[in-house]
Amino acid sequence: MNNTAHSLILVAVIAGITILLRFLPFLVFRSGAPKTVLYLGKVLPYAIIGMLVVYCLKNVSFTDGSHGISEILSVGLVVALHKWKHNTLLSVAVGTACYMVLVQAVF
C-alpha cells in the first residue's frame, strides 16, 4: 500500500515536471518573444530533427554486433526511397520491414 502511494507520487512528479517543461517557453514568452527567440523557432526544427535521428540511433555500435550495418542499410533505403517516391508511409513501412528482416534473419 505504501509502495502504491509512493509510486503514485512519483508518477505525479514525473507528469508535473514534464508538463512544466512543455509549458515553459509559452509561460516565459507570454507577452511576445524577442526576435532572437523567434529566429530560433525558425531554425531549430531543422537542427532538432537531425538530433532526433541521432538520438534514435544512439545505441548503434560500429565496433561490435553487426557493426551498425542493419541501421546503415535501412536508413539508406529510407532516404533513397523517399527521394524517389516522396511517400512517407511507403518509406517508413519498407524501411522498417527491411530493418526487421536484417536484425531477425540476417544478423
Binding site: 531543422y46 537542427a47 535521428v53 534514435c56 529510407v78 527521394k83 516522396h86 522498417t96 530493418y99 526487421m100
Partner: peptide, 30 residues
C-alpha cells in the same frame, strides 16, 4: 526491430525538410 518505424519517420522528415530549403546549415549543424 519494429520500433525502427520511429527512426524511419524522423529520417523521412529530415529528407523533406532538406528538400524544402537550400539553406542546409541548421540541419547539418544538428
Amino acid at each position: 526491430g519494429i520500433d525502427f518505424a520511429m527512426t524511419a519517420l524522423f529520417v523521412v522528415i529530415f529528407v523533406e525538410q532538406w528538400e524544402k530549403t537550400k539553406q542546409h546549415l541548421p540541419a547539418v549543424s544538428g
